[in-house]
């Protein structure tokens, strides 16, 4: 639908706001609705809109297809890293209280939850976008 001027223009205008909203859902996982997974899916949905409006090449130029795996590894590293930090501080896996008492900072708990949510969100976004771009690649040849 790249030749359809209405859909192209409206997608252009709404994509940045959808992306900011998705990031808002990720960051406010501890206090509001949603969390990492939902925000990541909404972010990937904005890329679907971009695929429809600009085709595959427009998105890959913007995001860098080679970097998608790196993004997902970074997300997993954040998630697992905080989990193992908890183990190192003497608690269970992802028991935030252990780090909080080991470091001695008062409200670290909520921030750690947010960091874990961000890790999940980055991973979900990267994996969803790479799945979508593989599905939409008509020739089916990987780069």
């Amino acid at each position: 639908m790249r030749e359809n001027v209405v859909i192209r223009t409206i997608s252009r205008i709404s994509v940045p706001f959808i992306q900011v909203f998705a990031l808002y859902v990720i960051v406010h996982g501890a206090v509001g609705a949603g969390g990492g997974f939902q925000g990541g899916v909404a972010f990937a949905a904005s890329f679907i809109l971009m695929f429809i409006a600009f085709g595959l090449s427009g998105v890959e130029k913007r995001l860098g297809k080679k970097w998608l795996m790196v993004y997902s590894i970074i997300g997993i590293a954040i998630y697992a890293g905080i989990g193992f930090l908890c183990l190192a501080a003497g608690g269970n896996y992802l028991e935030y209280g252990a780090i909080e008492s080991a470091v001695g900072v008062a409200h670290l708990h909520g921030y750690l939850i947010d960091a874990v949510e961000m890790g999940i969100g980055i991973t979900v976004m990267a994996v969803m976008v790479s799945i979508i771009s593989d599905v939409m690649d008509r020739d089916g040849e990987s780069p």
């Binding site: 709404s14 909203f21 859902v25 609705a33 949603g34 949905a45 679907i48 809109l49 429809i52």
Partner: peptide, 23 residues
């Protein structure tokens, strides 16, 4: 008021799904 966020997400997904099915 949390339901408002869910409604916004639903509006978004509704739009994107309609466009994707149309394409």
């Amino acid at each position: 008021p949390i339901f408002l966020d869910i409604a916004i997400v639903y509006a978004m997904i509704n739009f994107i799904a309609t466009i994707a099915v149309a394409r």
